[in-house]
Simulated assay, not measured.
Amino acid sequence: MVSKVVFGNVYSNKKVLVTGDTGFKGSWLCTWLISLGAEVYGISKDIPTNPSMFVELGLAEKMKHFFADVRDLEAIRKLINEIEPDFLFHLAAQPIVSLSYRDPIDTISSNVMGTANVLEVLRSYTKPCTAIIITSDKCYDNVEWIYGYKETDALGGKDIYSGSKGAAELIFKSYYHSFFKKEKGLVQIASARAGNVIGGGDWALDRIIPDCMRSWSEGKVVEIRSPKATRPWQHVLEPLSGYLQLGERLYKDHNLNGDSFNFGPKPEYNHTVQEILEDMSVRWHFKNSKEAFEVTGNIKFYEAGLLKLNCDKALFHFQWKATLDYQTLIEYTSDWYYEFYKNKGDMFEFTKSQIEGYENLAETKNISWII
């Protein structure tokens, strides 16, 4: 049997550095990179949640992790130069909208200066490196229209978190045109934007899926504030496949240097909060939704409404598209938490099995990053 080739095998036996490796997306990315045969390194200032996917998967024993804050320029410079990564994925950030209201300076310094510091180190890096700078779909100036935002649309936002992500993208653009565009060869950079990501292992504050799973694991009814709010939900593996494919293509095609790409689900994946919770509650064996959640209408802070991405650019340049259908998204997310809370399983092996299942589905659908 011929083994499948994933992302052109470019990550096999390569040094890959992930900033923000202890976070939700970072932990999934590190697990996938380990399964791809990469030599994985991580930098993060702390373990951001308890429980923590990074801890539950035992990732500290499966990769090389360092505690450092991306706002500390010299610490980051020292680590990057010592590690000498072939690839770098910058995810380290303050990711919670509600926290940006409580401590705006921390959010701005983490998301803007943290990004600037990584780019500043890469500016003087003397070895070949492919770097993907990850921001968010909230980098766009959300004017509440029904159309998907393109990479050329205006950046910014009405809240601090959105503003910090828009600013990070502007810093990326200015560093590219000031430095990386002029350098022919060594360091290639691109930015990636995605949002409304769900999946097992997320325990972040003020996010609807983690709130539900915490409550349901304790047999409690969860309170929801905006049942009719619509989001283009996607499983965490969807944007990660985009980041990894972008890294592969940038590594091979330097014409993509300085570009930005959106990664989002298909339009038909838009569902209300109430719909997705009803579907997930079935996987947790609730007899009816009243046992699972109740509507409070207590909105604690401003958060933008519908925001979806136009992903035609990624489709055009490297045929990227989402793999999972809505029902599989529900199953993957619900089943991960059920395995953790109810079955007490080996979560590293379970996570790897979901990644393998995702790869197999991508192969059957002839998705471009796997052959």
Rank of each mutant, 00 (worst) to 15 (best):
T323W: 00
R225M: 14
G199K: 03
D279W: 06
T328H: 09
A131E: 03
T333K: 05
G264A: 15
Y332T: 01
R193K: 11
E120P: 02
K182N: 13
L324S: 10
G157A: 07
I299F: 12
E303Y: 05
I134H: 14
Q354R: 10
S3G: 09
N343V: 12
E278T: 14
I276C: 08
G258P: 03
S52F: 05
V40Q: 04
F7H: 15
E359R: 07
F87A: 09
V187D: 01
A93I: 02
G163T: 04
L186Y: 04
G357R: 02
W216F: 13
I108A: 11
F180N: 04
K150N: 10
F67D: 00
I371N: 09
M213V: 09
H235D: 11
I132M: 07
L155D: 00
L29P: 03
V282Y: 11
P51K: 05
A314V: 13
K158R: 12
M53N: 06
K14C: 13
K14S: 14
S98M: 03
G199W: 11
F7M: 12
V187A: 06
K182Y: 12
D137G: 13
A292V: 04
F318C: 09
L99P: 00
I370S: 05
D137H: 06
F54H: 05
L59Y: 03
I105V: 14
S110E: 02
A194K: 04
D153W: 04
K78W: 06
Y341W: 15
R123P: 00
K352M: 10
Y11H: 12
I367F: 08
T296V: 05
F293E: 00
E278F: 12
G242F: 11
V221E: 00
S191R: 08
I367T: 07
M53Q: 06
E359A: 09
M347P: 00
L155Q: 02
F87V: 05
K228V: 07
L205E: 10
L73R: 05
F172S: 12
E278P: 00
S260V: 05
K64D: 08
S100Y: 04
A92G: 00
R123L: 09
